[in-house]
């Protein structure tokens, strides 16, 4: 059974930890999902910017509904495992949750800006900044 990478719009670089070992994907894909982009309010400018970004990335681009297309690809490649980038975006999160019913979905976090655990009840910036400041001025955020 194989693994493939689903690259989405929040993580468009080949140096994202998603692509680091032990990832050895048979396939990496980006799904061009018109309805998703419409729901995200993306106009022509943004879509051109995104497509241009995809040109140099090690991914194949498929057009279609994201969930349906990923399921079909998983079936066609007999994949059991999808690696993708973790994101706060709930629309993408829902797709990942739906995939988890039949596949193992691994959500890989990006390099952190600051090595700071989640704080409860974040509301105002300075509550965060008081803790983050020391780390923010260290290379790799204090990692």
């Amino acid at each position: 059974m194989s693994t493939f990478i689903w690259l989405h719009e929040e993580a468009l670089r080949a140096t994202h930890p998603l692509f680091l070992p032990p990832a050895n994907p048979e396939q990496s894909v980006f799904i061009w999902d018109d309805a998703y982009m419409d729901a995200m309010e993306y106009g022509l400018k943004r879509r051109v910017f995104l497509y241009e970004t995809l040109l140099d990335l090690p991914v194949e681009i498929y057009a279609g509904d994201t969930l349906e297309t990923l399921k079909k690809l998983a079936e066609a490649t007999r994949a059991s495992h999808i690696r993708t980038a973790a994101t706060p975006n709930p629309r993408l999160g829902q797709i990942m949750d739906a995939l988890s019913s039949t596949l193992t979905v691994e959500r890989v976090a990006d390099e952190a800006f600051v090595n700071l655990p989640e704080q409860d009840n974040l509301r105002r910036f300075f509550k965060y900044w008081n803790k983050a400041k020391r780390l923010a001025f260290q290379p790799n955020g204090g990692r």
Partner: peptide
Amino acid sequence: ISPSLAPDDSHVSDTVGGRE
């Protein structure tokens, strides 16, 4: 490949996508 775009949405930015 973007049928949902409004026909009058015609602007493209000079800012080019991509890592480079």
